[in-house]
Amino acid sequence: MKKFLLMGCSILIAASVGCTGNQASEEKAAMKTEAKKGVEKVAEKPKCTVEASHIVDADNARKRAASVGGEWRDTAKFIKQAHAAVKAGKCHKAEALAKKALMEGQLGYEQAMSQKELKMPGYFKF
C-alpha cells in the first residue's frame, strides 16, 4: 500500500514540475517575441540623427576651407563615406568619418589662412 502511495505522489510531483516547465518555456517564448517587436520598433525610428548633423558640420567646415583654397584631398571623400554609413545604419562609422572630415576642414582652413601672405623661405636668397 505504502509503495502505491509513494508512486502516486511521485507521479503527481513529476506532472506538476512538467507543467511549470511548460509554463516557463511559454513565458520565455512570449518574452522573446515581445523583445523582437521592441527591436523592430527601434529600427523603425530614423537612425544616426546625431551623426547626420555632424556630417553637415563637417561639410560646412570643408566648404569654408575650399572658399580660401585650403580644401584637402580626402575630406569630401570622408563625407561621402559618412553619408553611406548613415544609410547603412552604421552610426559609429559615420561619426568617426564625420569627425575626421570636420578636423580636416578646420585644419585646411587654418593652414590656408596661415599661408595667406607670401612668406619666402629662408633658403631662397636674393
Partner: peptide
C-alpha cells in the same frame, strides 16, 4: 611657395 594639403608641403618643399 604656399604650403597646402595634409602633408603641409609647398611646390618648393620638394622641387627647391
Amino acid at each position: 611657395f604656399q604650403r597646402r594639403g595634409q602633408l603641409n608641403f609647398s611646390c618648393a618643399s620638394c622641387h627647391m
